[in-house]
Design a protein around this nucleic acid. Structure first.
Lengths: 217, 217
DNA sequence: CGGGCGCGTGAATCACCATTCACTCGTTGC
DNA sequence: GCAACGAGTGAATGGTGATTCACGCGCCCG
């Protein structure tokens, strides 16, 4: 590698950074945050431990980037799903279903990034993720509330509660793991249904909304 | 102290054990699980670090006892509240409200014991707590389901989701902290209401049930 | 009362990881 | 070709916190 950064080298460096982040993600998926250790990440990425520090000033920064990357992806998916829906209530349903479906697919990673402990600095970031998620849902809840589609309630309480219900009910360690696609689909629908009811949509109407949701890949 | 354990000494030892557990609990309340370190616990209990090991084979065992003590208390409270209610649906409501109210009062402790990271062995115990809680709610949900008080649903999914919603909505770091008793009462009622709706009780009926609940001290 | 059992002690030890740094070596610009 | 730059290395370092252990002392037993 060069001493005046060549186009070629820049690409190589960026690639390596992605490799490192990928290794960290893979380890988180396999063994949770506890498995994301600088030495293991380096080994997995095929480099020396010290090299990690050429790319990230500290392990905390590495994990921060991992978490914010995941958060961005998930939030974007929720937004897209919601925006494709015709009205505020179906947007809410679509957002919930989309998050539920994706979270279930990526259980380990979402759990690691959302609930597992690292250190105080990272906790802030994890919290940010949950909060952005809650904020996104809160926005949708307010919109539905404004359209009189939901009974009067404090969205500031409902939104975090829904996030908790979905995470705990679907990706948390207590959640039953569906062993095939059909079972997963049922679980996602059940969780979405429960969330909509929690917000005050009556069972029958909620079932209709859920049935209309297009679940992501 | 003696070499054939006198009545007196047994008492002294038991007292000391309680002191240690009390110190651990106090630290958890003040600074979360991270603050529960053998050295700090010892200092707080007014003994040397080594002494802790005369009472608990390892820090993990100490924390295990702390968690299971808290879990037992909370579960018992839920059971009592539920059993005092006239029918299955109001029993469910009473159990939820009781848990919500107590959890809110003891936010820091419940959060620490329920969600904060320690190590893999302790995680099992934390999980046990959540599971017993979910199991207790699940039982009540099934009873209500059997009486046709709730729409058809999989209690194995609903129960953990409710636990998640209550914890995240009330005690988690995103939950707004009520600054007086009245606000706390409102928050507990809102969370209970949301949980009942999640299970399929329609808003108006749920409000009635919540209004009837006697909140614990 | 005196012998001895263990409790209590806390400094030392151990283990685990993140982080550093003196050095090697591939690549580039001339 | 070759001088120089900086990426890559990985053993050594450092910090944090649990756990141990050899010793001193208070209390029970006869």
């Amino acid at each position: 590698m060069p001493y005046r950064r060549t186009e070629n080298v820049v690409r190589r460096l960026a690639l390596r950074e992605d490799t490192i982040l990928g290794a960290a993600e893979a380890l988180a998926i396999e063994g949770g945050m506890a498995a994301v250790q600088v030495a293991s990440v380096a080994e997995r990425a095929g480099i020396a431990a010290g090299t990690v520090y050429r790319y990230f000033p500290s392990k905390t920064d590495l994990i921060a980037e991992l978490i914010s990357g995941v958060a961005e992806r998930e939030l974007e998916a929720v937004r897209l799903a919601a925006e494709a829906a015709p009205g505020p209530l179906s947007a809410l349903a679509a957002g919930l279903a989309s998050f539920a479906a994706r979270a279930l697919q990526r259980r380990r990673l979402i759990w690691a990034v959302t609930a597992e402990p690292v250190d105080a600095d990272v906790d802030t970031l994890r919290l940010d993720f949950r909060q952005s998620l809650a904020a996104e849902f809160e926005r949708r809840i307010r919109a539905a509330l404004a359209g009189r589609h939901l009974p009067d309630q404090d969205a500031r309480v409902s939104a975090p509660a829904i996030v908790g219900a979905l995470l705990e009910g679907l990706v948390g360690p207590m959640a039953p793991s569906p062993d095939n696609d059909a079972a997963a689909r049922v679980a996602v629908q059940a969780a979405t249904l429960l969330s909509l009811r929690a917000l005050g949509v009556v069972d029958a109407r909620a079932r209709g909304l859920v049935a209309q949701c297009v679940l992501p890949v």
